[in-house]
């Protein structure tokens, strides 16, 4: 079997006495959609932060495309094509949606001279096409900070796609979103995966959404890996049900 795109092996991370991740391993094969679930405080976001280099890990290894990235910093890892979105949306509030997109072009292509270049017309077309894709084309000239929370989430997703990542880590893409919009988001995530070839690792609390999306799900509880498997198996796993309902 070929090596997975992302290979997390025995990662541990603690903050003082709190063990946020304890010996966690998971792998994300190229081209797939993988889910990560678990109760609040189970260490999902910490694991994301460990993967993208937001903080150093205590032990273990994180390999992206076979390359060890656990000692690299956030921008370096991002330039390799491993990107994340945030649970609380993060967009550039006092820039328009189009400008938010224009500055999100793939940094891999950015040389010293590009620092002073004008925005390429191709990039602007692509930006507008992606804004259309997430349904924000009408809002493209508004300041990102004036969008609603849900729209900002969509914009952040579009910015991530603009960057052409190989692997995208999404932290609760449907949280705080109007239930009727959620189906639209699920659909767009699937299309990004199928049409644009972006591998996805998704943290999600919305069970219906993640069961629908992911082909393989990992469940964390108390910083440890509790279970993994295809959605149907996870749904009926007694330990997962207990963890979510607080049975132990």
């Amino acid at each position: 079997m070929a090596e997975a795109l992302l290979e997390v092996t025995n990662v541990s991370k603690s903050f003082g006495g709190v063990i946020a991740n304890d010996d966690v391993s998971l792998s994300v094969p190229e081209g797939r959609i993988v889910g990560l679930i678990g109760p609040n405080g189970s260490g999902k976001t910490t694991l994301f932060n460990s993967i993208v280099g937001f903080h150093p890990i205590d032990s273990g290894s994180v390999k992206f495309e076979g390359r060890e990235v656990s000692r690299m910093r956030v921008p370096q890892i991002a330039r390799l094509g491993l990107l994340r979105t945030f649970q609380q949306t993060r967009v550039y509030g006092r820039m328009t949606c189009v400008q938010n997109m224009q500055i999100s072009t793939p940094p891999r292509e950015e040389g010293l001279r590009d620092m002073f270049a004008k925005a390429r017309s191709g990039a602007t077309e692509k930006a507008e096409a992606l804004l259309e894709f997430v349904g924000l084309y009408q809002k493209r000239l508004l300041f990102a900070g004036d969008l609603s929370f849900g729209q900002q989430k969509l914009l952040e997703f579009a910015m991530a796609l603009m960057n052409e990542p190989k692997l995208l880590l999404l932290d609760e893409p449907t949280a705080g979103i109007n239930p009727t919009l959620i189906n639209g988001i699920i659909d767009r995530l699937k299309r990004a995966n199928a049409d644009l070839g972006v591998t996805l690792l998704i943290i999600e609390h919305n069970m219906r959404a993640i069961m629908n999306l992911a082909e393989h799900i990992y469940c964390l509880a108390h910083g440890q890996l509790l279970a993994q498997g295809p959605p149907a198996e996870i749904k009926d796993n007694q330990r997962v049900i207990d963890a979510y309902l607080g049975a132990h």
Partner: peptide, 14 residues
Amino acid sequence: NAIRDDEDKAEAMG
């Protein structure tokens, strides 16, 4: 401008 609005985000975008 992106650094002004959210430097962590700018770093996270590479």
